[in-house]
Design a binder for these strands. Sequence first.
DNA 1: TGTACATCAGTGAACGCGCGTTCACTGATGTAC
DNA 2: TGTACATCAGTGAACGCGCGTTCACTGATGTAC
Lengths: 231, 231
Amino acid sequence: MESPKRAATRAASVERIKATARAQLACGGAAALSLREVAREMDQTSSALYRYFANRDELLTALIVDAYNDLGVCTETAERKIDRGDLRSRWRAACRAIRQWAHAHPHEYALIFGTPIPGYEAPAFTVAAATRATGVIARILNDDCAQTTRKTNERDDDEAARALEMSGVQVLMPDVPASVALRGLFAWTQIFGFLSFELFGHLEGSIRRGDDAFEKLIEQTSHQVGLGVEQ
Amino acid sequence: MESPKRAATRAASVERIKATARAQLACGGAAALSLREVAREMDQTSSALYRYFANRDELLTALIVDAYNDLGVCTETAERKIDRGDLRSRWRAACRAIRQWAHAHPHEYALIFGTPIPGYEAPAFTVAAATRATGVIARILNDDCAQTTRKTNERDDDEAARALEMSGVQVLMPDVPASVALRGLFAWTQIFGFLSFELFGHLEGSIRRGDDAFEKLIEQTSHQVGLGVEQ
DNA sequence: TGTACATCAGTGAACGCGCGTTCACTGATGTAC
DNA sequence: TGTACATCAGTGAACGCGCGTTCACTGATGTAC
């Protein structure tokens, strides 16, 4: 821990292990990820890996956190390039970035948005990474509501507020009324629902050009959450 | 194959094996499903199972087909009870049935809508079972379009038609214009996106009462696909 | 109704395999004087 | 700059385990006459 040189080579080793493990996710999935196989791929003994990860689950956790962060960073940087005032375009950029990342890293997508790994419990500290991409979307909605004045139906709001975990939602979107926040959450699940179906093969036979379909979906969801619509 | 008595006990054995395997999906997931463990649970030797399934994948296929059929039957029977003319209610009934089934069988839901099992390729004959629930939704949309006259935007239709695999879509929904079919498909992915997030734990901290949220989602999606709205 | 035979269900041992994890160890790489 | 020592990275053998699948077999259950 003292030597910066050692710390650097150590970090490099950790990166190499994770990269090898990531490659292995592609052929076999999370359940089949094996420390021995990773070590074999690196021309090392399996016991060597225990210098870097206490056990298999710890490696998995690292991969999951990396995936969340990677998705988060991609979404953030894409959305940051857009003029703050153009909320529709920000929405579009964020959604496109998410899909792009998902298609570029289908196995990491499956790792975080697919079936939970049986017997694996994600540690609490993964939450920060997990909410990064969500945060981008939430901020767009919040900026929109902070700018425009909305006539919100109070009765409608109550129903939505009951359904939502408002304490948590208000941290991310303080200026967003419950009804809009709920629609935002629906849009969120809609995006990932489409991507999961697309990546997991459930759209075969019904969709020919996913790109075009997704553009349509972006427009639909941005309408749904009321982006750019003065009410 | 000749004796009906033997065929019956044989079918019963198959059912017992599948039931035991299903129970095992709950603790460990599809990847961890093991013939040896199933046999152990049944107080039999593992080799005995090879009388009924040629290998592990064949058992998995049977479970998948059963899950699809079970979901299909649940959706069909719930939707059939509703007055044919009340399309909104039919939509509601179908969606509710899907969610109910998913919550009652989370592991079978994960089996068919979660991460594809690595190395497993579903045989072609599973498609029939897989499209059963889809068919219910498609029929509602088709009935709606057959009844109401819609002013469809032609230009809009063309874009949607390009995105869709029209040959397949038109078999299920011959009377539905492409733009509506695409919105229907989005609604479809929306429903399952919500359910996946709900069952896989991605809504923890943002949604308190899933039932209420889902009811709102049903209303939203039924509006989206234009149900009961004369245009 | 009784018997000979064929078909089936299930057994038990074995095959070769891979896994996570531990542990005592050998060298190499840094640190302190 | 040189040496003694501590810390680290990686080895190799071993532990106990579970897996899918095969195969020759024993009984039980039906079938045909």
